[in-house]
Amino acid sequence: MNSILILAHGSQIKETEAIVNSLVEKVKKRTGSEFVQAAYLQFSEQDLESGIRRLVDEGADSIKVVPMFIFDGVHVTQDIPGELEEIRAKYPHIKIKLSRHIGDDDRLADIIADRAASV
């Protein structure tokens, strides 16, 4: 079973997790998959490894990790790949792929233009 793990940065303000949970539901509808979870790099018990464990417990044999990050910073280039390497060693029977982060996507320009037009 294919699954998706949306990986956000995380925040000390716990209410922000509602935004990512909303995105999880939207991705479920968009993909037709019930096997979409959220995880956070920092400030949450729902970290990357526990997110993967939850999907494995649900029966996932293939997990696509999608980092919800804009910049090619240390988290994207070092932290996430490093953590995934350690996690893959714990789950050698699970295919774990890291997608490209959100980055400089043209669709973000549309959102920014829409937001600017609304004020």
Results as ranks from 00 to 15, higher is better:
R107E: 14
V20M: 10
R53D: 09
A8Y: 08
N21E: 15
V76Q: 06
E17I: 02
K14V: 06
K64D: 10
S62A: 12
V76I: 09
V24R: 09
I112W: 05
G51C: 04
I111H: 06
A18Y: 15
I13A: 13
F35Q: 13
I52G: 01
I96C: 05
A109G: 12
G51H: 03
L5Y: 00
A18W: 15
A60C: 01
R100P: 09
I112F: 08
G103A: 04
L55N: 01
K26M: 11
R88H: 03
K26V: 02
S11T: 13
I94C: 02
D47C: 01
L55M: 07
I63L: 05
V27T: 05
P81L: 00
S50V: 12
E49L: 05
V65E: 05
Q37G: 07
K64H: 07
V119I: 15
I13P: 03
D57T: 05
V74E: 11
E86K: 12
T16C: 07
E15S: 10
G82C: 02
E45W: 02
V65W: 08
L55F: 00
K29S: 07
A89H: 11
A89M: 14
Q42A: 09
D47E: 06
F35I: 06
Q37W: 12
H101T: 00
I87F: 07
D114S: 14
S11W: 06
K64W: 01
G59P: 04
D105P: 05
K14P: 11
E86D: 08
A117C: 08
E15K: 13
